[in-house]
Design a protein around this nucleic acid. Structure first.
Length: 440
DNA sequence: TCTGGGGTCCTAGGACCC
DNA sequence: TCTGGGGTCCTAGGACCC
């Protein structure tokens, strides 16, 4: 039996823990660059503000109703998430952290000693709320897909008091009949359109399609699994997370710029900044990467431009896996030079690190000399590692970016040209001493 | 005027291997 | 003229998730 715990309006709930004045009002949290709405309070949902709506489209409406828009504050949300996950890990045999605000639970055997599953689920909700201030809902079912569906319905129908258990066929049927097919986990916009075109409206009808049809129209094996799970046949197990964190198979960092950039050096400054951050995350996870991707994007909303808007290039590092920022930067520079075209206007850039593995595994090196310029002179591994450790320690102690590559430097007091907007950011209440709440 | 970021998984074609 | 089968890896792109 799986459980799925999901924070209600997670980012807004995090903000409300520290700003009770936001209670009862329409509140939204914006994406990076204050671009789109990524979290909405129930009051904001009632105003008809859609998930993902561009901020400029809803700003006026929000103002009319004395609402608030906040820039996203990932330091706060990340820390609140860790606290929630820690509470969950305390109460069930295993937890799989699925996203910043969601976790699958292993509910196996919980009923034997501790009353019914429903009682346990309510206890989990009360505990998380009491210890972190975050309201949640819990879905329970024999498959992950059904647990997601149960959670969805628990959020939608207040009379369920935040929990729903789908452990019998009759409960499953009732629930799936009440759930639109488009709300099933794994059904995105494209598939939703296709289902509508075929007259499939509810999750129950979706569960009734033939396996051949699912394979043909819903993405091959992915669609087949989805149908199996809706019918109660598990196709995915729980993948427990160690220390309440999620080990990643890839690490990326990308940002939209605050303005259009054309100069190579500006783009290089941005890529340097993002790669430094990505490498930092890589080291924090204790891994090395051997595949590096750099991409730059033009404005996809510019109707005068032909697609593709994003150009990317990927390199398998000829010198093997590394987590050394300076080494990665040398490769990234070559990749960016390959992508960059003078005169074009770029709005976004990013890097992706793939092929992650812990250091010390046998490294496969190239037998032959790589092309000139493709490989750095091998740095002294020990000293390079020590340098990165010092870098991370300084940035941890004195704040991100205290020590950073010179390419990210900007003359004078100018803000870096690639920096985006974050005009409504709340404080890092739980992770910076200077931002601690003061209660008078 | 303004329209995010960080992930996962799958597919498909080509090059290449035995 | 006929021209296999079973793989891997790479790259690019698409769909989906939160």
């Amino acid at each position: 039996m799986f459980g799925l715990v999901d924070g209600n309006n997670f980012y807004v709930s995090c903000e409300r823990v520290f700003q009770p004045r936001l209670d009862g009002r329409p509140v939204v949290v914006l994406s990076n660059n204050d671009g789109n709405v990524v979290s909405r309070s129930p009051e904001a949902k009632q105003l008809g503000i859609a998930m993902g709506a561009p901020y400029f489209e809803v700003r006026q409406l929000l103002r009319q109703h004395q609402g608030h828009a906040l820039s996203s504050n990932y330091a706060l949300y990340g820390d609140m998430s860790r606290r929630v996950m820690a509470r969950l890990a305390d109460q069930v045999p295993a937890v799989e952290v699925y996203s910043i605000d969601e976790a699958f639970l292993d509910l196996h055997g919980l009923t034997t000693f501790c009353g019914t599953l429903d009682v346990r689920a309510q206890r989990i909700r009360r505990d998380v709320l009491a210890c972190t201030g975050i309201p949640t809902c819990v879905g329970m079912a024999p498959t992950k897909t059904l647990a997601k569906a149960a959670n969805r319905l628990a959020k939608k129908y207040p009379e369920l008091h935040g929990i729903l258990r789908l452990d019998t066929n009759s409960r499953r049927e009732r629930a799936l009949r009440a759930l639109p097919a488009a709300d099933v986990w794994g059904i995105g916009r494209q598939c939703a359109h296709l289902l509508t075109a075929h007259g499939i409206r509810t999750a129950w009808e979706l569960a009734g399609v033939s396996e051949a049809w699912a394979r043909k129209h819903l993405g091959g094996v992915v669609g087949w699994r989805l149908i199996q799970e809706l019918r109660g046949q598990p196709c995915q197990g729980l993948q427990p997370s160690e220390d309440g964190t999620l080990a990643r198979q890839s690490i990326s960092c990308s940002r939209s710029f605050g303005q259009r950039l054309t100069a190579f050096d500006d783009l290089w400054g941005a890529v340097t900044t993002y790669l430094s951050r990505a490498a930092e995350k890589l080291r924090a996870q204790g891994d090395q990467a051997h595949i590096l991707t750099v991409f730059i994007s033009q404005d996809r909303y510019d109707t005068c431009l032909p697609p593709p808007y994003t150009r990317s290039t990927t390199l398998t590092l000829p010198s093997g896996p590394t987590s050394n920022t300076l080494q990665l930067l040398a490769y990234a520079r070559h990749l960016l030079e390959r992508l960059y075209e003078p005169g074009r206007q770029y709005v976004k850039a990013g890097v992706v690190l793939d092929g992650l593995e812990p250091p010390g595994r046998g490294q496969q090196l190239s037998l032959f000399a790589p092309p000139a310029g493709a490989v750095l002179p091998a740095p002294d591994a020990g000293r390079a590692q020590q340098l990165m450790r010092s870098l991370d320690a300084l940035n941890r102690q004195f704040g991100r970016g205290t020590v950073r590559p010179a390419a990210t430097a900007v003359s004078g007091d100018q803000p870096a040209p690639w920096l985006g907007k974050a005009q409504h950011r709340s404080q890092a209440y739980t992770t910076r001493f200077d931002d601690l709440m003061i209660i008078l």
